[in-house]
Write a protein that binds this DNA or RNA. Sequence first.
DNA 1: CTGTTAGCGCGTTCAT
DNA 2: ATGAACGCGCTAACAG
Lengths: 341, 341
Amino acid sequence: MARVAGVSLATASRVVSKSSYRVSDATRRKVESAVAELDYSPSALARALATRRSRLLGIVVGDITDPYFSEIARGVEDVARANGYLSIVCNTDRTASTELRYVEMLRDYHAAAVIFAGGGREDDRDRAALEHAVRQLEDRGTRVIALIPRDFPALGVGIDNRAACADLARHLIALGHRRIAYIDGPPGLTTSRLRMEGFRDTLAAAGLTPFAVFPGNYDYESGLEVAARIARDVLPDAVLASHDATAVGVLTGLQEFGIRVPDRLSVAGMGGLREAGLLGLTTVQFPMRRLGIEAARLALAEGETGPEPIVLPHELIARRSTAPRLTTRQTAGPTDVEGIL
Amino acid sequence: MARVAGVSLATASRVVSKSSYRVSDATRRKVESAVAELDYSPSALARALATRRSRLLGIVVGDITDPYFSEIARGVEDVARANGYLSIVCNTDRTASTELRYVEMLRDYHAAAVIFAGGGREDDRDRAALEHAVRQLEDRGTRVIALIPRDFPALGVGIDNRAACADLARHLIALGHRRIAYIDGPPGLTTSRLRMEGFRDTLAAAGLTPFAVFPGNYDYESGLEVAARIARDVLPDAVLASHDATAVGVLTGLQEFGIRVPDRLSVAGMGGLREAGLLGLTTVQFPMRRLGIEAARLALAEGETGPEPIVLPHELIARRSTAPRLTTRQTAGPTDVEGIL
DNA sequence: CTGTTAGCGCGTTCAT
DNA sequence: ATGAACGCGCTAACAG
């Protein structure tokens, strides 16, 4: 193509790659017309090879199907696109080995940066291997960003899981509830631990002890099970689930037993899922998309940023699944119409 | 690295790239130990440049945040990973220009294949440009797969939008409903047209005419609006929404007006969203993940496949949002407990 | 301002 | 079975 333009490869490269080089308008025009004529487009691959810098951005998530992750990915992708980067999404299914494999592939493609969404596990046996792979990444010049908390050193951005759960607990206590049950997250996950700590500490500060702590898995089924158990046994004043999906499960399960929320007990979740809004579930909303955006900004930023992680604010959204304890409310009114649910 | 192995670059390449070449076990071992020692890994970029074939798979979606798309992406990614490919997801926001831009980037990276999820627009002014870009892709040897219907020629896989909507209409008619309203999808979308046709044709075949056809946008808000309109006016026997999100909007809106579903009227949606199950919404479930899987298989398949598109089956899931017309049902029973909704 | 040259890190002929 | 050389398409250094 440089040939049909009648110039040398170098000049052609200079105009095509928009390098801040001085090129006369005349030759520039010649090249441009040649480009148009040949329908030419430069090979990003070759460029990356020569530059040692690709414009590929890796984002490793647990499962893109999970609304949290897809929202994060969307945020990342938005700024990636704005900067001419392509986003590679990697589903790890929370499995260390596939996560590792992906990291290696991203390294082989000289990804400009990789963003680890999804928290780390605290019981990870492959941590050493991962840490090694991450180091390799950095050695090759790719930036690594982590949505904290993560089990390897990396600058990052995140949310305050502990504080969020604490806020929720305080909300429940403020409503007069004392016998508060908690549904834990998957064992070994850092976020599980943090949220649990937020719950326990807040209760302790109020001189309370948990009514019960049920195991959970950040999913719908966990909620159903808990609902069945408390329905057959003693009802707490409130149940705080460490995940919206679980809280929705509680709501559904309770309803099958004819136990009305919030009349008989309050229910709250965490995350800010669409379903939460739909069912009137009290929750804390996490700014997932912003999280992705900030992470991508960090990833693409030229200047080195300080090691202190950015912490984005969450928001407590009180809805009709939580209400003051021991209140006699009317069962009429627009917010309490019987639906098909 | 070939140096420390004590062999030539060629032999090293032969073992690293697993080429079906004859290499003696002795030298192979030498190379392998050198690889391990140096923590060496081949550059996928250089390989792609030399081979003229990358292991990058592009998947262009409307919005990864949309459960349909994320499910498709997941399916694609699953088979991509199994074959050692990386998946690049591109959010077009249903905008032709950004879709075009992405296609160009994917071409520059010599993507092995690109899968177009998300249907085409019928009013697309940039169709020519897109078609051109797609042709360029194919010229460079990248396969292009489309989740039909699409506005440019490509082999593909899809679902039968028309039949799905027809099934729903038949279901409603079989329940005895005659005055059936429809909520359309976004104008200009091929899927909108197809679904609408399925609805109209089925009604016509039964000697019925639509009670009303409301404009919609495949979203929640459209449903709310329709609910408000029919609540203040005459209630149809049933409303069929072209999208689950819209149907959920109808449900929510109706309930705010104290209109009980399915007592007063039936409601159905399309898609198979999680929320549909949660709220007991009758719908057709589309096998989105399978769609992605099949698309990826096509994309990665070596042999040429026939031009006839694969059509995956959908499934009508009748739930409690639809019921026979003019039936007096008791308002008790476990499926009809008043919830917080 | 523009042309020449030398890699980037691989795969792939050809010889040997 | 192995080694030498060339090319993939582009950028970067150095001349002119």
